[in-house]
């Protein structure tokens, strides 16, 4: 037994090495709960702390769906004070479950109001990230519209993500529902199926492996990705290797809000205002591949050429998405896989 004791002691010491280190009394700390695509420069958070005295602690896991459902499950005792990353496909669920509290700050009407879910002031739009069909510029005479994708010229050229397992996959499905209507979208998917559409489970396989315009140099020149993706595929000479088809986009909006049950709702509100402020909004394009929701924030130079913001993307009301998501996915499964 004696030889176990040093082992236990060692385990305790090592355990302490990853311990939280304790909190200083009186420190103003706000815990930001988010998904794992969230990214920000530490220097931006540091500037905010100097300005406001608030330290932001980021806690992220899973995708937008996992985030929303974690928030719903923990609403009685939330994991933090502010949440960022619930998008318009999940917003209704979070609002119906009473996850968010009302917050109206000085930054809420600088353009963000264009993307509001409702007028209750519980969710503030932080960024916009459209899902669009991307094409490899090596493809001669590329498609432009949803309808073109069903053209035999593009047989066996398109790869999409499964809407049941992938967020861009779901957005593309919603785009077709918005474009063709409740009556027409299943027929359109039957055409896509006849035209050899390939379905994979996630963006990683679709974009980095099947798509010919990315580093994977796959076999298919047309893929469902984001409006911003071409900005990451610009050659050394400045010419983009891929293009987003701006008539095939579905708008995804990501929101932030103060959680019901936040320890200090006022500080939490200040963090939401920070996410809407120019200082943070300037960084979202570079760090998260999304477009700022605030008006008048400049995009990085390469984006103007390779990844302009789509002007007329398809949208659906958040409440409709919430009510029909599961049915649409099941109908999609029987149309495409049945």
């Amino acid at each position: 037994m004696r030889r176990f004791i040093p082992l236990v002691a060692l385990a305790l010491v090592a355990g302490c090495s990853v311990g939280s280190g304790g909190e200083t009394a009186g420190e103003r700390k706000v815990v930001l709960v988010t998904h794992d695509s969230f990214a920000v420069d530490q220097s931006v958070l540091d500037r905010f702390r100097e300005r406001s005295g608030i330290t932001v602690e980021v806690r992220s896991s899973g995708d937008a769906g996992a985030l929303t459902n974690q928030l719903v499950l923990t609403k009685a005792n939330p994991l933090g004070d502010v949440a960022f990353g619930v998008d318009n496909t999940f917003a209704s669920r979070a609002l119906d479950e009473g996850v968010f509290a009302e917050h109206r700050g000085p930054e809420s009407d600088k353009g963000q109001q264009r993307y509001a879910v409702d007028d209750s002031g519980r969710l503030s739009a932080v960024d916009v990230g459209d899902v669009c069909v991307n094409v490899d510029n090596a493809l001669a005479d590329p498609p432009r519209t949803f309808e073109d994708l069903a053209d035999p010229r593009f047989k066996d050229k398109l790869v999409v993500e499964d809407p049941a397992t992938s967020s861009p996959g779901l957005a593309f499905l919603l785009g077709t529902v918005a474009h063709f209507g409740e009556q027409g979208w299943q027929g359109y998917w039957a055409q896509l199926k006849a035209n050899g559409v390939k379905v994979v489970s996630g963006w990683e396989e679709a974009y980095t492996q099947e798509f010919s315009g990315s580093s994977g140099k796959g076999p298919r020149p047309i893929v469902v990705s984001y409006a911003s993706s071409p900005s990451a595929e610009v050659g050394d000479d400045g010419t983009p290797r891929t293009t987003a088809l701006l008539d095939t986009c579905f708008r995804q909006v990501e929101y932030a809000g103060v959680l019901n049950g936040a320890k200090n709702p006022e500080d939490a509100g200040e963090v939401v205002d920070f996410l809407l402020s120019e200082d943070f909004q300037e960084t979202v394009a570079d760090k998260m591949y999304v477009y700022p929701s605030r008006e008048g924030v400049a995009l990085p130079e390469s984006w103007a050429v390779a990844a302009p913001l789509p002007q007329n993307p398809a949208t659906l009301p958040a409440a409709d998405i919430s009510a029909n998501r599961q049915r649409w996915i099941e109908q999609w499964r029987s149309a495409v896989q049945g």
Binding site: L73, A164, G202, R333
Partner: peptide, 22 residues
């Protein structure tokens, strides 16, 4: 990844129902 959209197991279905559909 390898089952694509065709092959599913209890594990992937539990994940979908818990994480995406609640």
């Amino acid at each position: 990844l390898l089952g694509g959209a065709r092959y599913r197991t209890l594990e992937t279905e539990i994940y979908l129902r818990t994480v995406e559909l609640l």
